[in-house]
Design a protein around this nucleic acid. Structure first.
Length: 880
DNA sequence: GCGGACTGCTTACCT
DNA sequence: ACAGGTAAGCAGTCCGCG
């Protein structure tokens, strides 16, 4: 089973169990996990400057615990809260009534005391007085069977996990420098270079609200990111049958190998001695300096692994939450270790460490935002260590010829070490890029390292905004509070089942256009969110006098009296990225700072990219449909008005999608005029994004091909580039593109056309002669859910998968099914079970037609005419 | 009972 | 578990046709 499928399987298992227990989704999500930290790092009363890696709650101490990393010694220090901070919730039940009518709250065993506090309610724009119910421990607030949260009719901020609440109240920024001084946690000030400061001040001249913000935010981007000591661990477990993954809950079988690779030079493989296993030859791929150690007893082996885990501030795994660390923990218990002897702490959703931080890179690289950043958004199948390592490091796992238990010691060591080494490399390649990115993302989101690497971008944005709420003494609204006031949607989506209307796509004329400029708005949606003050509290605000301040083309109005919190922050991130850090990343001379600036602007990009979408996502706690709807509506206006202006100026717009305009053979002077007008009239930036020697449109939206001035090919949406297209079609398509990339002007076209026609005909000829091998004919489609879940229809890849299952080959969600089209009942067969003579050539010819149809359409030809008249074999001679 | 028009489902893509 | 819009292929259904 693939790791992804494995994980989903486990999730399902847990869900089922909890359903039986009658727990609700919300409970699980928000429950504070009270773990007892039984092994402690040094708790010094003073330290040099350290990085704040994590904040957690230590159940044994009953206090918030900060984990600090000292770059000078490479050690972790603990700091326990000394301010007496306690978990709490807010309610509108006044104290008198609480005493009278909610005695069970007062009598709750975890109840501590109450206070009356003033908060600013952003939804109603007024000060409110609320009762703060303070408890002795987080579970008394919420998450336990009978917690205070459930006893009260209305509460706020009661579902925020305690360790995050602590971060907000102390305004701690994970990833930043702190030191312990006389037993207190103190922030280390960061020097911001004066030229950067001046640049930003100038950007916000006369805007005190932004000026106030930038002082603190610039520190996040300027603070150095030190190298963090870390160790990658990978384990191998005995398993009696091939293809059967050992269950980490039972931990029934022996741990036979553990590989350790650290960024301070440790390379070890710990092997368990087993009768009958041969030493074998040392494989050439296994580095010379890997230390191979043998252990007579599994207990001793685990003891040694645990010792290493305690020495490092960060432990890296690939799928350690679902497998390696879970297995080690349960296996150790089975072997008689006490919980105090194991440095692993199982938590509800992940495996934590007593001293350091456990980063599961499988989870981190599964994050869609990170995938988009690291792999350019493509390839949903990038899920396994092998695929990710291949893509980023150009090195894969060791391929095994036999079952893991049949390997010699040397082969096992080689296999296991490669996995640990790859896991480490995923964080060290390109000058520690990934580790630096993690630290920057922690600083922006204010999330501890464990949380950051395991949560999605919406959780990052949520936490960033909550932090800013608390800073301003804003009451954090409940989702229903927002929705009860702002569920109005007035536009209709084009796609059935969607909530509101999205972007505009212009229909492109089919054909070839030379000298095309692609211009696009710099971060269109975030720019509009800033310019129009879009935020959940400002759109449809409660003031009568703002109702006349309507958004163009919409019944929604926006607040005139205050700046919206999300508008402010998204605007800040956009401005600092576009106006400051992108430029610094380009101009900076010092290579270390240049790299940091590049990481900074990329980290910002991740937030900016998701900033609009979250407001249209029901799962987001600040979900606000009018904000999302207004954003796309304003985007439609921006692109439409720009097109109208372009036409007025005599520019020819031939295509556009959401925030981009394709302008044919533009007069540079008029282009400049357009850009100036856009900035003046619309308040957004329009820039040149790409310059094509020519563009070939198929006539369909989101489907074209551009040739850059240097001959590089840019393909969008065409069948020939899709992942699931059979290899022989991709190859033939690439051949045609190759021909097109050498076309310089209109005169080269006819020759290229002839060559392409020949190339297509040759492709078909090969197909008809049966010269194309089966694997080249295979469609590769991902199974997105278990076979049993396909209830309404049975798509071809599902048919093929079912045949595989009957044949005895297990399939799971995430698997890519390779199938070919054959004559006969089902029409498809998995490639493993098919014969070349069963191939349905007719079907494949129609695929040749669609693949090249898109290309030929652009060249002014009809595909059926190209393929017509030469249907008999050999009637077309390649020399003609 | 059959075939074409139509709708809906599924996957992969674009911004 | 950020959004909506588009293309393509296929499965399944409806409807008209004596």
């Amino acid at each position: 089973m693939s790791p992804r499928a494995l994980e989903e399987y486990r999730f399902r298992e847990r869900d089922e169990i909890e359903e039986e227990e009658g727990l609700e989704e919300e409970f699980r999500e928000e429950e504070e996990e009270v773990a007892e930290v039984h092994i402690r790092a040094e708790v010094p009363t003073s330290t040099p400057p350290c990085i704040l890696l994590s904040v957690t709650y230590d159940g044994k101490a009953g206090k918030a615990l900060c984990k600090l990393y000292d770059p000078s010694s490479g050690k972790i220090y603990f700091w326990y809260d000394n301010t007496g901070h306690k978990p709490y919730l807010l309610t509108n039940v006044p104290p008198e009534e609480l005493v009278k009518r909610y005695r069970n709250v007062i009598m709750h065993k975890g109840f501590d005391h109450i206070e009356v506090v003033k908060k600013y309610d952003p939804l109603h724009d007024r000060e409110v007085v609320v009762t703060k119910v303070i408890a002795k421990d987080p579970l008394s607030i919420g998450g336990a069977k009978e917690s205070i949260r459930e006893m009260l009719p209305k509460t706020w901020e009661s579902k925020i996990k305690y360790h995050l609440c602590y971060i907000y109240d102390r305004q701690l920024i994970p990833g930043m420098f702190y030191r312990i001084e006389n037993g207190n946690l103190v922030k280390v000030p960061i020097e911001v270079p004066s030229d950067v400061k001046e640049k930003v001040y100038k950007l916000y001249e006369g805007d005190p609200e932004y000026q106030k913000l930038v002082d603190e935010w610039l520190e996040l981007f300027q603070a150095p990111v030190p190298n963090i000591r870390r160790v990658a661990i990978d384990i191998e477990v005995f398993s009696p049958a091939p293809n059967k993954l050992p269950n980490p809950k039972d931990a029934h079988y022996e741990v036979i190998a553990v590989a350790i690779a650290s960024n301070d030079g440790v390379k070890r493989v710990l092997l368990l001695e087993r009768p009958g296993v041969e030493m074998g030859e040392k494989p050439p791929e296994l580095p010379e300096d890997v230390k191979i150690e043998f252990y007579r007893s599994e207990r001793e082996l685990l003891r040694e692994v645990f010792k290493v885990m305690l020495e490092y501030p960060v432990v890296l795994t690939f799928n350690g939450d679902a497998f390696d660390l879970q297995y080690l923990y349960n296996r150790a218990l089975k072997l008689g270790f006490t919980r105090e002897e194991i440095p692993i702490i199982p938590r509800r959703n992940y495996m934590d460490l007593a001293i350091g931080i456990h980063v599961d890179l499988y989870k981190f690289f599964s994050n869609r935002a990170i995938q988009a950043y690291a792999f350019g958004g493509r390839y949903q199948e990038v899920k396994t260590l092998d695929a990710i390592a291949q893509a980023l490091l150009n090195v894969g796992k060791i391929t095994l010829e036999k079952h893991i238990t049949e390997l010699t010691y040397m082969e096992l060591a080689n296999y296991c070490f490669r996995d640990a080494w790859l896991t480490l490399q995923l964080t060290t390649f390109n000058n520690d890029l990934v580790m630096k990115l993690i630290v920057l993302l922690m600083r922006i989101s204010k999330l501890p390292m464990e949380d950051l690497t395991r949560s999605a971008v919406s959780a990052w944005i949520k936490n960033m905004l909550y932090f800013e709420h608390r800073k301003r003494n804003y009451l954090i609204p409940e989702k229903e509070d927002i929705l009860s006031m702002k569920s109005v949607i007035t536009t209709k989506a084009i796609i059935k089942g969607k909530k509101y209307m999205g972007a505009i796509v212009i229909e492109p004329p089919p054909g070839i256009f030379f000298n095309v400029i692609v211009s696009d708005f710099a971060s269109l949606y975030p720019s509009l969110i800033k310019k129009w003050n879009l935020s959940y509290e400002t759109v449809r605000c409660p003031h009568e006098e703002c109702k006349s301040n309507t958004l163009p083309g919409l019944p929604h109005w926006v607040c005139r009296k205050r700046r919206g919190i999300s508008s402010l922050l998204i605007g800040l991130l956009r401005d600092l990225r576009v106006e400051v850090y992108k430029k610094l990343a380009k101009m900076e001379k010092d290579p270390v700072m240049k790299m940091q600036y590049d990481v900074v602007q990329n980290a910002m990009k991740v937030f900016i990219n998701a900033s609009y979408g979250v407001f249209g996502a029901e799962t987001f706690p600040l979900y606000c449909p009018p904000v999302a709807e207004a954003t796309t509506a304003l985007g439609r206006i921006a692109i439409s008005k720009t097109i109208a202006k372009a036409q007025e100026l005599g520019l020819t717009v031939i295509y556009g999608d959401t925030d981009s305009l394709f302008i044919w053979n533009p007069d540079p002077e008029k282009l400049k005029q357009l850009f100036e007008w856009v900035e003046e009239a619309l308040g957004v930036d329009l820039d040149v994004d790409k310059e094509y020697r020519y563009v070939a449109f198929s006539g369909k939206k989101k489907n074209y091909l551009g040739i850059y001035r240097d001959g590089k090919v840019d393909i969008k949406g065409m069948v020939g580039k899709k992942r699931n297209t059979p290899e022989f079609l991709k190859t033939a398509f690439a051949e045609a593109l190759n021909i097109l990339s050498s076309v310089n002007d209109i005169n080269d076209l006819s020759k290229a056309k002839t060559e392409i026609i020949e190339s297509i005909r040759s492709c078909r000829r090969k197909l008809e002669r049966g010269e194309i091998p089966l694997d080249q004919l295979a469609f590769k489609v991902m199974l997105s859910k278990p076979l049993s879940e396909y209830k309404r229809t049975t798509p071809p890849h599902v048919k093929a998968a079912k045949q595989l299952k009957i044949f005895g080959i297990e399939v799971a969600p995430g698997d890519i099914i390779h199938y070919v089209k054959v004559r006969g009942k089902d029409g498809v067969k998995p490639v493993q079970l098919a014969r070349i003579d069963e191939i349905d050539k007719e079907k494949y010819i129609s695929h040749i037609e669609t693949t090249f149809g898109q290309l030929l359409e652009a060249l002014g030809m009809k595909v059926d005419e190209v393929l017509k008249g030469v249907t008999t074999l050999f009637s077309y001679s390649s020399t003609s």
